[in-house]
Simulated assay, not measured.
Amino acid sequence: MTVMGIIGCRIFEDEIVHVLSNDLEVERIYLVKNEENIGLLNKLEAQGLEPVVLPVYEIRACLEQSEEFSVIVQLQEIGLHMNPSRLRSKTYTNLSLMSGFADGILLFYGLCGHAFSRMQTDFAHTGCSLQLLQDRSTGEPARPLEDCIAAALGGSSRYREILKSHSDTLFLTPMWALNWKNAFGVDDELLPGFEFTPENLKELGYRKVARVDTGLSYEPDFEKKIEEFALNFGFEVIEFEGSTEIAQQSYSLMQNMLLRPHLKPENILFKKSLKSFST
């Protein structure tokens, strides 16, 4: 039995659907039964998958009777990144539960205010491999991404380069566009004293909204939501080509580390690139 866990922000819902629906090796997908996983469940089922939805303790009982390669997913609420200490507390609670029966856990998060800076040390006693989304775009040693927009744009270095000439731009992926109020902490005590209005955003220097197209189409209203946002705030709409490469690479590396620990990361990525080229 090999068990891979995923704990992530709902912002990465589409990327998780993508990697799971394209994984030919996963034999069983479990979703922890909670409100945050409802959208993920609907999208996975729309792709023809049949996830098993159970409370954590029932998932553990099922795994004890199984020899399959299984993936367990626990998504967390959008907006936790606005409060790193709350994000760390919530994630640590779920890590404590999942690390008891998972061989490795991939966190669909970036650095997020360094909320996870001590994660490896704090969970070293569990023997469970833990990994944040990894940025390998520069050819240098892998390092955690800055945030979810960096993941969508293909890496932190490309994100920083884009920001040099687009510092007046808010970047929205499909899940950001549909959930921007929660993602930005609007109507929440996380932004005390700040009203999310066109006037205040323009005072901060924002003039544009970028539609980051990752090539995923699980949210058909993406373009409509971007237009609504732009109209509401009086912003110009621009577009950037994104990708799912970092999500896919990070998932593949964790999966192969669990199923094929003898392979080096660079060999895993090389084989994957050959496969993509041949198809």
Rank of each mutant, 00 (worst) to 15 (best):
S167M: 03
G100S: 14
S66P: 14
S273C: 06
E36I: 03
L87M: 10
A230Y: 09
M175K: 13
P192A: 06
A124E: 11
P174C: 08
E161F: 13
L31Q: 08
K208T: 00
Q255N: 06
F101K: 07
T197P: 02
E223Y: 11
F171Q: 01
D122E: 15
G242H: 05
N37Y: 04
S99P: 14
V52H: 08
I246E: 09
L258D: 03
A183N: 07
F108S: 01
V56L: 09
S243G: 10
I7G: 12
T93N: 10
G139I: 12
P261F: 00
V237G: 00
V212M: 13
D135I: 11
S117N: 11
D14L: 09
V237H: 00
D188H: 15
L153E: 04
L87C: 03
I11A: 06
N83K: 15
C9I: 04
A102Y: 01
K264L: 13
S252E: 14
P84V: 01
Q249V: 06
E64A: 12
L258W: 03
W176G: 00
Y159M: 03
I6H: 10
E35S: 10
T121R: 15
L107A: 07
I105M: 10
K275N: 09
L24K: 15
L111T: 08
L259W: 05
N42G: 07
P265E: 15
S85C: 12
E50V: 05
L130G: 09
I11P: 04
G242Q: 04
N256G: 10
T169L: 02
S167Y: 15
A210V: 07
G193E: 05
N22W: 14
N37I: 04
H81M: 04
E36Q: 07
A142P: 04
I59T: 04
T126C: 07
I59M: 04
G215D: 06
S276V: 14
Y57M: 05
F108K: 01
H81N: 02
A152N: 13
Q248P: 00
Q47H: 13
Y92Q: 07
L190E: 14
V71L: 02
Y92H: 09
P84S: 08
S252L: 15
L153H: 07
K208H: 08
D188A: 11
E228Q: 12
V19C: 02
E64W: 08
G104W: 14
S89F: 11
I78A: 01
K264T: 09
K224N: 07
A183K: 01
S137A: 11
L204Y: 03
N179V: 02
H262S: 09
E227T: 02
H114S: 15
C112D: 15
R143V: 08
S85H: 15
L106V: 05
E266P: 01
A102D: 01
I16H: 06
E239D: 08
I246F: 10
F69D: 03
V26K: 10
F108C: 02
D103F: 12
Q255T: 11
M254S: 02
P220G: 08
K272D: 12
R88V: 01
V3K: 07
F229V: 00
A230C: 11
A247Y: 08
L20E: 08
T126P: 09
F233K: 00
L201S: 00
N94A: 06
S21N: 12
I149A: 03
T279M: 08
P265L: 14
K90I: 11
F222E: 00
S99K: 14
L201N: 00
N256D: 10
S165N: 14
S117G: 04
D122Q: 11
F194Y: 13
A152W: 11
L111S: 13
L263T: 05
T138E: 13
